[in-house]
Structure formats: C-alpha cells, structure tokens
Computed example of a mutant assay.
Amino acid sequence: MAVDKRQLGRSGIEVSALGMGCWAIGGPWAEGARPLGWGRVDDDESVRAVRRALDLGVTLFDTADTYGAGHGERVLGRALAGRRDEAVIATKFGYTFDERTRQATGENASPHYLRRAVTDSLRRLGTDRIDLYQLHLGDLPLP
C-alpha cells in the first residue's frame, strides 16, 4: 500500500500525508475531577496500532507531553523502539502536570520550563531527538 508523502512545512522533513494522533494512547488523566483523556486503554493494543500504522506507511506521529500526563509519550516510545528512524515525532509542551497523580496542574511557557519539558519528553520517548517540537498553548499574551 503506497501512502502519499508531503513535506512538513518548510522543514525539508518528509512525512506521510496521513499522520497518527496519539492523544488516546495516553489513557486517563484529569484536571481535578474533569477527565481529559480517553479513559482506560490497553497499552499493548496501542503499541500494536502504532506499529501497524508504520507497516502501512504512516510516518508522522503527533503527541504531547501532557497526554496521559506523560504516559502517551512512554507508550509511543515503546512502540517505536527499534524503528525510530522510520518515524517523525511531533510533540508539544506548555501544560504542566503531575505524572504520579496524572493530574494537569497549569501552564508554563518559560525558557526554563521548556528545557525541562524537552529533556523529560526525550526520556519518555526513548529517543535522542524530537523532529517537531511545538508550544501547546494557544492563548498566550503577545510579548
């Protein structure tokens, strides 16, 4: 099965025309009592889905550090283990969270937080690079 390819913006990175959004594989997380995730998911099934997407030619995987309060990045990293060079990882930062309690805790777009967030994402994803790193906050005041 041939999948159409596209250039990712002006980056020179080639990606499949169809990408896989990874919000759901993060599983449950919340802001207080308000659920933010998709509920319980089977991590092994999520890994199989990512690998099947790769087998079918999907190369772009969009996630965020906050999906499942870090859990989504860990699952994606596990799925891409041994196949990292076949994938383009797009992840995001900006929302803060507690990995232990799986709770959203706020927002932070400071340079200090960015450095911590990218280091944590690299660790969770089990990789030495992030292909597209995005600010996840849409309502920041202009400087």
Score class of each variant (00 low, 15 high):
34 R>V: 12
41 V>Q: 08
78 R>H: 08
88 V>I: 15
82 G>D: 07
58 V>S: 11
36 L>C: 06
51 R>W: 04
70 G>L: 05
57 G>I: 08
37 G>F: 01
25 I>N: 08
39 G>I: 07
55 D>L: 12
84 R>Q: 13
71 H>G: 01
26 G>S: 03
83 R>S: 10
59 T>W: 03
54 L>I: 15
58 V>W: 02
26 G>E: 03
47 V>Q: 12
47 V>W: 05
22 C>Q: 09
77 G>N: 07
88 V>W: 15
22 C>V: 03
59 T>Y: 05
37 G>C: 03
36 L>D: 01
34 R>E: 12
29 W>Q: 01
59 T>I: 09
46 S>G: 10
69 A>Y: 00
83 R>L: 13
48 R>W: 03
44 D>F: 01
41 V>W: 08
76 L>I: 09
32 G>Y: 08
59 T>N: 06
49 A>L: 12
85 D>M: 10
42 D>E: 11
24 A>Q: 14
68 G>A: 02
81 A>S: 12
52 R>D: 15
35 P>I: 00
31 E>N: 09
37 G>Q: 03
48 R>Y: 00
76 L>H: 08
69 A>S: 12
40 R>G: 04
36 L>I: 03
27 G>M: 02
31 E>L: 07
24 A>V: 11
21 G>F: 06
66 T>Y: 01
66 T>K: 00
64 A>Q: 02
50 V>P: 04
30 A>E: 04
71 H>D: 02
66 T>L: 13
37 G>Y: 01
60 L>Y: 12
67 Y>V: 00
45 E>A: 12
79 A>H: 02
23 W>T: 01
89 I>G: 12
49 A>E: 12
78 R>F: 06
86 E>M: 13
63 T>Q: 10
53 A>P: 07
52 R>H: 15
87 A>V: 13
78 R>T: 11
88 V>M: 15
39 G>W: 06
56 L>G: 14
50 V>A: 05
44 D>L: 05
49 A>I: 11
79 A>R: 02
33 A>C: 00
60 L>F: 14
66 T>P: 01
65 D>V: 05
73 E>F: 04
53 A>M: 11
27 G>E: 00
55 D>H: 11
39 G>V: 07
65 D>F: 01
35 P>V: 00
45 E>C: 05
43 D>C: 05
54 L>G: 14
76 L>D: 09
54 L>K: 11
87 A>M: 13
47 V>G: 03
34 R>M: 11
40 R>C: 00
86 E>H: 14
45 E>Y: 03
90 A>E: 14
39 G>K: 06
72 G>W: 00
25 I>W: 03
55 D>F: 13
76 L>T: 11
77 G>M: 04
